[in-house]
Design a protein around this nucleic acid. Structure first.
Lengths: 200, 200
DNA sequence: GTCTATAAAAGGATAGAC
DNA sequence: GTCTATCCTTTTATAGAC
């Protein structure tokens, strides 16, 4: 097996297991069993479990465009609709997992209570990659939104809506909690668009 | 030591340790060392670590009024201002912990990936207790808000704002992320109040 | 790069005396 | 109700051959 394949297999398995069980509840043995590797191979690429986590967070960060935005925005051109199309993708994930879905980054951000700087930076970089994609849509919406709008703040609020909605849908095991969060955000955008019209 | 004192000491220590380190990263040994008890005492009251968790979640649920709402609303009568006063309390917690604060319930809700029904129900009950307090304020605000407003949905959106803001402030180690989430919610309420006036 | 075997420690939980 | 001692499993990580 070529090195890159093995490394990629480990990262791929870890992405899935950390998402399903969390970082602390995933053991090295879980990873070895899932990848059908022996500990020697794993420790050859990753000196410690923390390093696997770093690999996972880098993979998420580098995959935002291809793994998340591209599928979400297929056939959607309107910038504001793209924001809600992204949220609709999370809704699908919630439904497909019987409302057990958790955002892999958000869950790790709350599970790890003393992450070292490298891990913290990677968690933050993932959030920034996500919100930057929203900022681009807000900018593309141009005059439909108020001139004085805080684009970054609103983009972070979209992330807040997703994370809070996912958390509550998961806790109650009801997608309606996510839907209501998105509905509130939709109202928010409609009111912003209405106020932009009045001024213009 | 009277039984109730010992039990309460364990629950109190567990509330703090689960909050600081998470459930999985808190060991029985941590609890014993913090309470200065021996394992016999702990297992006399709690047959397993899960049962300690149940005790903790019950304590949070039963303490919402006294531990959370009462301090947050001291001297604040206006119902809408009470909502933002509650968020201001979380802001204080974020600042006091150097932006490492995590909502104890939200963190557990994402950390525990396969909670048994009793634990899930208690997590949900904590969220419901929180949002119900907000619903009461929205009702008290009466005609200042639109007649057709979904009170429960908006109350859950306030919780969403808190949880998402806390998550991002903690990840970036900057309270400004929480502040921007609250600012967006403030704008939301202002736009709702404006639209209620127009109709009236 | 990958294999097997194993070290070394930490974890949850129990037993039985007092 | 609390004490001490300890069992048993899981866990991360290493050693050294191939």
């Amino acid at each position: 097996m070529a090195p890159k394949d093995t490394r990629a297999r480990i990262v791929h398995a870890a992405m899935e297991l950390f998402w399903l069980k969390g970082f602390n509840s995933t053991s090295i043995a879980d990873l070895l069993s899932r990848t059908q590797l022996n500990s020697g191979s794993l420790y050859h690429f990753f000196p410690s479990k923390q390093d696997v986590l770093v690999g996972v967070l880098e993979a998420y960060r580098d995959g935002i465009e291809e793994m998340l935005l591209k599928p979400a925005w297929e056939g959607v051109d309107d910038p504001i609709e793209r924001i809600f199309a992204l949220l609709a993708l999370y809704r699908r994930l919630i439904v497909e997992t019987d409302c057990t879905y958790g955002c892999p980054i958000g869950s790790l951000a709350l599970e790890l209570h003393e992450p070292d700087p490298q891990v913290r930076d990677l968690l933050a970089a993932n959030f920034v990659g996500w919100t930057n994609a929203i900022v681009r849509q807000l900018e593309a919406a141009g005059a439909r939104l108020p001139r004085a709008l805080d684009h970054e703040g609103l983009a972070q609020f979209v992330l807040t809506t997703m994370e809070g909605g996912v958390m509550q849908a998961r806790t109650h095991r009801e997608v309606a909690y996510f839907d209501r969060a998105v509905a509130m955000l939709r109202t928010h955008f409609q009111m912003l668009e209405a106020s932009a019209k009045v001024v213009a």
